[in-house]
């Protein structure tokens, strides 16, 4: 009631409201889960670029599976790991539309690694938002391709054993070698400053698609308070202490910063010494 009285006396403007591209639906995410922050940033970017009406999102399998109910744009639910292939099919059918996939670490870097690498190397002009929280959340906390060495999970109860389970995958570093890639950045959302930086990166990744710059991926180092068995606050602290040294934040590829208009120009420059690739050889 106090608020109503205030409103009657003074004028107010909303400085923060739910973005249009994020439907007013209560998510299935646990308290403090960063999925909610990242999905809101994606929706804010869709609003700011004014592309909701021509955007198609691809939902993964994992905790974000029901994100097709959260985003206001048209949505497609993909099989586990196949989002980049589905996104490819959509983008090739509707090249003037904006197509993004939202994927977790198991989806993108384990079962879907082939689709991830090949969509990237084909230079599909799509946007990938990659949530890396080093664990399988939805199935109850199993070891992920990005689980850290010695990290205890349900399926690495004595800690991730490098002799038997091998090493985690650093996705941005791996994809940075591919000619088809235009932009890769790793961010996190553990505080207001980080959230602003993450949004800037996500906006770049969408703007690149609109401008035809090429394949763009933003990796968000995230938390899973429930399966890490921590409070959201403890989870951020653990993430800062253990994940960020293993997964350093930063830009891993940016063809525009390197002076090229798009991924294709950068790839062409890299291939100048190859007569076949540079078009200097006969067929």
């Amino acid at each position: 009631m106090a608020a109503d009285e205030q409103m009657s006396r003074t004028e107010e403007k909303a400085v923060f409201q739910r973005p249009h591209a994020l439907l007013p639906v209560v998510t299935n995410y646990c308290p403090g889960c960063t999925h909610g922050i990242v999905e809101r940033l994606v929706a804010e970017v869709i609003d700011e670029l004014d592309v909701e009406g021509r955007t198609i999102g691809i939902a993964p399998v994992g905790c974000a599976v029901t994100s097709y109910d959260f985003f206001g744009c048209d949505m497609i639910e993909a099989a586990h790991g196949r989002a980049p292939a589905v996104a490819t099919g959509v983008k090739r059918s509707l090249p003037d539309h904006v197509v993004f996939a939202y994927q977790g670490d198991g989806d993108l870097a384990s079962i879907g690694m082939a689709e991830t690498v090949h969509a990237a190397t084909r230079g599909e002009n799509i946007t990938i938002i990659f949530i890396n929280n080093a664990i399988y959340g939805m199935t109850g906390g199993q070891m992920a391709p990005t689980s850290l060495p010695n990290q205890v999970t349900q399926t690495s109860p004595y800690g991730r054993d490098l002799d038997t389970a091998g090493y985690p995958i650093r996705v941005c570093e791996l994809l940075s070698t591919l000619d088809g890639v235009a932009y890769l950045e790793r961010v996190c959302v553990d505080g207001p400053k980080a959230v602003r930086a993450a949004k800037k990166a996500i906006k770049r990744a969408f703007q690149n698609q609109v401008d035809g710059v090429g394949y763009s991926l933003v990796e968000v180092v995230s938390t899973c308070p429930t399966n890490w068995k921590m409070t959201p606050q403890e989870a951020f602290a653990w993430m800062r202490e253990n994940m960020l040294p293993y997964y350093p934040l930063g830009v891993y590829r940016d063809v525009q910063a390197d002076g090229f208009a798009n991924a294709a120009e950068a790839a062409f420059a890299r291939a100048q010494d190859c007569p076949m690739a540079s078009g200097k050889a006969g067929r």
Binding site: E12, V15, P192
Partner: peptide, 20 residues
């Protein structure tokens, strides 16, 4: 009305208004 709270809210539960 700095909206820092809303920036961090994973559930978009907070709307922020400022006097003009």
């Amino acid at each position: 009305g700095c909206a820092t709270c809303a920036l961090m809210c994973p559930d978009v539960a907070i709307a922020v208004f400022r006097e003009v």
